[in-house]
């Protein structure tokens, strides 16, 4: 287990086809709480999340979690904007990460039952996962990410395209896991959601961290005119 989950980005640059998507970024993230990344489309939010998770190819720089990369990756989980469902049953989707981690079958079965109940899919365990509704799929993707008790959870707009009820259920789940000490780093377009969940907010613009601070301060007095314009609902490019 990595004790200190603070991430340090050192001169991180991500370029694709000669265009800079992210960076250069020199920044440090706190070791706990819930960080929400906001910004306009194309600002580099997903790239930042993937960079922190270690699945983005960096053109320059490094991300230091204070532990070997393999060890850190095993304690991280990632939920994608469009939930990726394995072409298996709900049960098999939940078992999958546990089987990869070599969790004994009896323990895996117990955890599956527990998480299926938590996300309200206990009666659908043997249904094919690809046939679930959008909200159910996203809840299953979240449960599949959390079933291994990750220390750090990345979420890329987990509530995009979901109705209010599903959004509330997912937010409640996130508040629960945050209370147990799981570090959450999440992107969203929904500023209301950012207000409800964030301990601190990163405002990303053109691949750069334009503003980063406690949520109360960010929403009350954004540090840059671009962040203020974004909060006002203006178009920021």
């Amino acid at each position: 287990m990595v004790d200190n989950m603070a991430a340090k980005l050192e001169n991180v640059v991500v370029e694709r086809r000669g265009k800079t998507i992210l960076g250069p970024v020199d920044h440090q993230l706190a070791a706990d709480g819930c960080t929400i990344v906001v910004g306009p489309n194309g600002a580099g939010k997903t790239t930042l999340l993937k960079t922190l998770h270690g699945v983005e190819r960096l053109s320059q720089g490094r991300v230091d979690w204070g532990a070997p990369e393999q060890m850190v990756r095993q304690q991280q989980a990632y939920v994608f904007q469009s939930p990726i469902m394995l072409r298996r049953s709900v049960r098999q989707n939940l078992i999958f990460p546990l089987a990869l981690a070599g969790v004994p079958r009896a323990e895996a079965a117990a955890r599956v039952t527990q998480w299926a109940a938590k996300i309200g899919l206990a009666k659908m365990l043997d249904q094919p996962a690809p046939r679930l509704s959008g909200g159910e799929k996203q809840k299953l993707a979240l449960a599949r990410a959390l079933i291994r008790d990750p220390a750090i959870l990345f979420l890329d707009e987990p509530c995009a395209n979901l109705d209010g009820r599903s959004t509330r259920e997912i937010e409640n789940l996130l508040l629960d896991v945050q209370a147990t000490g799981t570090r959450i780093i999440m992107t969203t377009h929904d500023l209301g959601q950012a207000r409800r969940l964030a301990r601190d907010v990163i405002f990303l613009l053109r691949g750069q961290i334009n503003d980063h601070g406690p949520a109360d301060r960010f929403f009350a007095a954004p540090a840059s005119p671009e962040a203020a314009a974004f909060l006002n609902g203006d178009i920021v490019e």
Binding site: H53, V55, A77, F80, I84, L86, P97
Partner: peptide, 12 residues
């Protein structure tokens, strides 16, 4: 193409 991100993320 469908599974890529998930399987990479799970460090398989």
């Amino acid at each position: 193409a469908e599974y890529h991100d998930l399987l990479i993320s799970l460090n398989t």
